Amino acid sequence: MPQGKPAGKVCIHLNEELLCELFGQADRPKVCSDFSFDTEVCGSSRTEALETLNWLEKNTAS
């Protein structure tokens, strides 16, 4: 996403199964490649992860 991904918007590179279509490719954004899974951030389910991400996006926007 050339201008960055707006908070609350799904990445345009996710497919119908919510998997990254750029995974493993050289043109995958560095921020995505550098992301490291952590249960403190992601929780134990997709729902928990999205709740945390939504909170972070709302509370850390510049």
Rank of each mutant, 00 (worst) to 15 (best):
E40C: 01
D34P: 00
R28L: 12
N59E: 12
T60F: 14
F37H: 08
D27T: 09
F35G: 00
P2V: 10
P6A: 14
E57W: 02
M1V: 06
L53S: 10
T60V: 00
A26T: 11
S45G: 04
L50Q: 14
C42R: 02
N15M: 00
E57H: 08
N54M: 11
R28Y: 01
L14I: 06
L19D: 14
D34T: 11
K58V: 03
R28Q: 14
F35E: 03
A49L: 06
P29A: 06
W55Q: 05
F35W: 11
A49S: 09
L50F: 11
E17Q: 11
C11Y: 01
N54C: 06
L53E: 04
T52R: 11
H13M: 12
T60C: 06
F35C: 01
L53D: 07
G4Q: 04
M1W: 09
L22V: 05
N54V: 08
T47G: 07
R46I: 12
S45K: 01
F35S: 00
H13V: 01
D34S: 13
A7N: 08
P6S: 04
A49Q: 07
E16F: 10
I12N: 07
E16Y: 07
S62P: 12
C20T: 02
S62H: 06
H13A: 11
F37K: 03
L18W: 15
P29W: 05
E48P: 01
A26I: 10
A7I: 03
E16G: 02
E21K: 13
G4T: 04
E40W: 10
E48A: 12
C32Q: 02
S36I: 13
L19R: 10
S33D: 13
L14H: 04
S45Y: 00
N15K: 00
D27C: 05
C32S: 00
M1Y: 09
S45D: 06
K5H: 09
K9Q: 14
V10G: 06
S45N: 02
G24P: 02
V41D: 09
F37A: 04
M1D: 14
N54S: 14
N59K: 09
V31K: 08
E40H: 07
E17K: 15
C32K: 03
R46H: 09
I12P: 12
I12A: 13
H13I: 07
D27S: 12
L18F: 13
K30T: 14
G43K: 00
E48G: 02
E48F: 02
V31R: 10
L14K: 05
C20H: 03
D27P: 03
G43Q: 01
D34R: 08
C32H: 02
